[in-house]
Design a protein around this nucleic acid. Structure first.
Length: 477
DNA sequence: ATGTTC
């Protein structure tokens, strides 16, 4: 990114000076100068475009892991007021609606389980369907899929996947309100009927990780984390259904924008007013996809528990938390001393409520929401906690991952999947995947340095670091 | 991200 175009507000926050006479809401880019310098200029172009959309409240923002996306940058956050003509955009949510991370904490120590990692890797790879178009053991009828879209993880628990106690530890208690299955196309449903309980491909993964470092002992205690402990993180989303909803509604929202005379700075920013038939229809479908993603991660958590119980008898996996990365949610936020209800787009950004937020489970009230920054294959991940400052600075939002630094095509030219997997094995990290192409695209070197992203996230005041997790076993889609 | 150029 051309840093000459930015004005630095503090060590970890930048803005774009307004041209004389230009009427435009503010843009804020969170992150260190070295992180921003390596970002594509398109991140700046895209977030500047977002700031021109109707009904924006406060600045359009990017998180420290931001990169070029479809219309909105990934790592983009923007809030809109429906009463001021505020819009909802499918590109502002992303194609993988409610992609996110389920983090499970175990009662196992690295030293006690390390000998079983090869067996665990094989058993997980066998039990967790992964890859493009991969189907699982479940084949749902159209009616059953409607129930998934309405019930989310709660539906999955009632089907016998996991326990009731998981639900309080999932955003929205495992069930997103406002889902309208009738707004989801037959094609989207058809694609999903065999894909429940599957991981998908791309950057999705299931990792067994060890807590290598604790940054904040008080929060770690509240989250039930200690050094040497094994965790499992499951990163996936709403599979074919979410993708098809994104595809379907780009067309419908573009038509609505045209009909209502909304000037789009980029056709990829197709959007409609929240208070319009098309906007409402998209939100109903998007909420249905959120429930599909929540149910999907619940089923995968259950499958993971079954493998652990078989391979390491006596093992137990409790839900630490389940975060979504690609959503547009109606939330109460403080604006100029007044509470307002805003629709917050978070695309490749994690909700990060601070301490005492009513949406948090009792055990996390004192320390804030767990925020999980999923690193790239083989590098490491972070658990952080939401802060009061994050509410003021970014509508309670934080980074979601390392964030790509290089396109998939560029990564394919630079690395070979098989070599990377051998190399990681030498570092004590077992990868299991069907796709060597996918492994090359996901090369750690194609991502930003997750340590720098987590550090910048903390120093920008968005969330504070609680623990660093080192991967030991990784199932890739 | 994605039945990976529906």
């Amino acid at each position: 990114m051309d840093m000459a175009r930015l004005r630095q507000l503090d060590d970890y926050c930048f803005t774009v000076p307004r041209a004389a006479g230009e009427v435009r809401s503010e843009v804020l880019l969170y992150g260190s100068a070295p992180l921003l310098r390596t970002m594509d200029d398109m991140v700046l172009t895209q977030i500047t475009n977002v700031a021109k959309l109707p009904g924006l409240v406060g600045p359009a923002m990017t998180m420290p892991d931001a990169h070029w996306g479809y219309g909105f940058p990934i790592g983009g956050v923007a809030a809109f007021d429906p009463d001021l003509g505020g819009i909802v955009s499918a590109g502002g949510v992303g194609f993988d609606i409610s992609c996110g991370i389920r983090c499970l904490r175990s009662n196992l120590e690295l030293k006690d389980a390390a000998a079983q990692f090869p067996q665990l890797a094989d058993a997980l790879f066998q039990a967790i369907p992964a890859g493009v178009g991969e189907e699982g053991a479940l084949k749902l009828s159209s009616h059953e899929l409607d129930q998934v879209m309405l019930g989310g993880a709660e539906w999955a628990v009632h089907q016998g996947y996991g326990s009731e106690s998981d639900l309080a530890l999932i955003e929205e208690h495992g069930k997103m309100r406002g889902a309208v299955p009738g707004n989801v196309s037959e094609l989207a449903k058809k694609r999903q009927r065999g894909e429940m309980g599957t991981l998908g491909s791309g950057n999705h993964y299931l990792e067994v990780q060890v807590v290598e470092k604790i940054f904040d002992t008080q929060a770690a205690r509240a989250f039930g984390l200690h050094e040497g402990q094994l965790l499992v993180s499951i990163h996936c989303g709403s599979r074919g259904l979410g993708h098809q909803i994104g595809t379907d509604y780009l067309v419908s929202l573009a038509k609505a924008a045209s009909r209502l005379g909304i000037v789009l700075p980029d056709r990829e920013l197709a959007c409609a007013p929240i208070n319009s038939p098309e906007g409402q229809e998209y939100l109903g479908a998007m909420n249905a996809a959120i429930n599909v993603a929540l149910a999907n991660r619940q089923i995968l958590a259950h499958l993971t528990r079954a493998v652990f119980a078989r391979v390491i008898p006596g093992s137990h996996l409790a839900t630490l938390y389940d975060v979504s990365h690609n959503t547009c949610k109606l939330e109460k936020h403080r604006v100029d001393g007044k509470d307002r209800m805003l629709y917050v787009h978070r695309k490749g950004a994690t909700r990060a409520f601070g301490p005492n937020h009513p949406a948090l489970p009792a055990e996390y009230q004192a320390v804030g929401q767990p925020v999980i920054i999923g690193g790239s294959m083989g590098t490491g991940s972070y658990v952080l906690a939401g802060t009061a400052e994050g509410e003021r600075r970014a509508w309670s939002s934080a980074s979601h991952g390392a964030g790509r630094a290089m396109s998939r095509n560029a990564a394919l030219k630079k690395w070979r999947g098989r070599e990377l997997i051998e190399q990681l094995k030498g570092q004590g990290i077992l990868i299991r995947t069907k796709s060597m192409r996918g492994a090359a695209e996901e090369a750690p070197g194609a991502y930003k340095d997750v340590d720098l992203v987590a550090e910048a996230t903390e120093k920008a005041g968005l969330a504070r670091r609680v623990a660093f997790l080192r991967p030991k076993v990784c199932i890739k889609g």
